[in-house]
Design a protein around this nucleic acid. Structure first.
Lengths: 334, 334
DNA sequence: CTGAAAGCGCTAACAG
DNA sequence: CTGTTAGCGCTTTCAG
């Protein structure tokens, strides 16, 4: 079928192992010999078989990326960061969408391990049983978890500083003069979001002003926030500002606010979290906490690249990236 | 390192090839033997090495997906369609972002071929030289092209019916009573968009009304359409409706229209193309031509799956998917 | 500097 | 039904 080292060896009159050395650039081949080999390889349009190489060396130069859904712009951005840096180092990434379903996650994990990937990147293992987590940990391949606060786990982690983000959002609103502030968030005990809420509350309580924060739990989606906001407005609360736990929720809030005949920021200030592309396009442009999504992908890939080198002794690495408040036009001073 | 067939063979007292047969389920193993083997495999937590299997069988059960950028929601949707159907058939997909740069595209192609992928999915080869295209074609792996109109090429293709979409958009506006209609599109000679423009023009000329279509070329982006629309409004044209070649452009048009103090659809009707998620969220909800993005990904994967089976004789397959007009609130009768 | 040889882990005839 | 025997294409000692 295709051209192999053997073919080159035969045609250039040297041994196959010499060809291998000449081609992979490892020292120990006479310049003259190397050039002859290279010429023959070129002429035959030789293409190394990386599967065979992988079997011989034990490394596939591939990472697995298991996220909930690539259609989520957050993950698309992260994925791009991962792919760019992995690719620059000669690594490929195989994409898996788990929908956060533990069964699917494990299927992908096993399948990837069978393909002998050199590293795994996942966005959550919260749904896995203790047993499954151990299986993962025991696999021997480095794993980096996304959106998981640094911990003494056996896995590496990459996350944004969610606490700090929540804190900054809260402090910003308070400095603007708001005192009655609602925070729209997801269910209790949702790692990331819980951190944001904690940060927000911390800002409220550490302020020297009298601020009254309320945390409203619900679905952390456009629809969920839409409903929470409707209810909030219906009960004529004294809230003057809303902090949405993510941009999608902020958009849901905008919808409800506009439908109620109110306007932003005149009647109500609003701040989001994530800084998705849409937040700058929407009217009014949304003030929000920027999460360095692409950079998180990069960071994760870098960790994997570093860990994929060593054979054993995986010292997990934790990286927490800073967030920025990007000020647009959805908040005003009162 | 890890458990191999050999280990199982030794511990269960049979030959390695019997183990292989028992495990891969091919007939020809006594029930009793199979069960014993399976038990040992289970006990040892055996995990097949798919790299080794790939080397032996010549198939990697992997497809390469080379798109311009996964952050583009269109491709994210397509990618999800590809991944879901490939995954269901036991295939993985490796994700590559080319930014439509021919050099990058070729690097990915070569790298994927070296990994012996069983199929390639690309969104454009327009930028490749004739020579490069031949290299691709000569590689022997099935290739399916996305967003490329069916042709007598050596590659399979999957696309939406762009001509029909343009036609439907035009006809819809005409039936609503519009006579002076502008079509905002990209540069001349842009495969997809050109088809949409052709369909639009066809609708105008095949109508029994007197309609005056104008096609405006520019950048096919939010910004590009924003500028085109500003100019259009500035010259006080008699245009009562705009057909934007894609939704992003429609959003750009909305921005310009709103800034000019006009409203949609009262002063101007607007129709887009793609039906991205945002088009239903934006105010007013955008009437647009729906492109079956997920299904295009599915279709592409199905073709690859079919072709990946055969060793030779790749009969390229072409699939053009229908589009739908989704009527929302950005157009009105005049 | 180069050749010989032994695998990497699995599949696939081909005999029994 | 099961064992034997070759590989798949490449890397990697170990000699020379």
């Amino acid at each position: 079928m295709s051209v192999t080292l053997r073919d080159i060896a035969r045609l250039s009159g040297v041994n196959i192992s010499t060809v291998s050395r000449a081609l992979t650039g490892s020292y120990g081949v006479r310049r003259q010999t190397r050039e002859k080999v290279l010429a023959v390889a070129e002429r035959l349009r030789y293409r190394p078989n990386r599967v065979a190489r992988g079997l011989a060396t034990g490394r596939s130069h591939t990472f697995g990326l298991i996220i909930s859904d690539i259609r989520n712009p957050f993950f698309a951005e992260v994925a791009r960061g991962v792919e760019d840096t992995a690719s620059a180092a000669g690594y490929d990434i195989v994409l898996c969408n788990s929908d956060l379903d533990p069964a699917k996650q494990m299927r992908y994990v096993r399948s990837l391990l069978e393909k002998r990937v050199d590293g795994l990147l996942m966005n959550s293992v919260a749904g896995l049983t203790r047993h499954q987590q151990e299986e993962l940990a025991g696999s021997g391949v480095p794993v980096v978890l996304l959106n998981v606060p640094p911990g003494a786990r056996t896995f590496s982690t990459v996350s944004a500083d969610n606490f700090q983000g929540g804190f900054r959002a809260g402090r910003y609103l308070i400095e603007l003069g708001h005192r009655t502030i609602a925070h729209l968030t997801g269910p209790r005990q949702h790692g990331n979001l819980t951190e944001r809420a904690r940060g927000f509350l911390k800002a409220a309580q550490s302020s020297d002003k009298q601020v009254a924060p309320t945390v409203i739990h619900g679905q952390h989606t456009f629809q969920g926030a839409y409903e929470m906001t409707r209810k909030l407005l219906a009960r004529h609360s004294k809230v003057t500002a809303i902090f949405a736990a993510n941009d999608a929720m902020a958009f849901g809030a905008i919808r409800a606010i506009v439908e109620a005949g109110l306007s932003i920021p005149e009647d109500l200030s609003l701040i989001g979290f994530d800084n998705v592309e849409l937040s700058s396009i929407i009217r009014p442009p949304l003030t929000t906490i920027h999460q360095p999504k692409y950079e998180m992908g990069q960071a994760a890939a870098e960790i994997l690249l570093r860990l994929a080198g060593r054979r054993q002794g995986q010292v997990p690495e934790h990286r927490m990236l800073g967030v920025d408040l990007v000020e647009r036009q959805s908040c005003r001073a009162v």
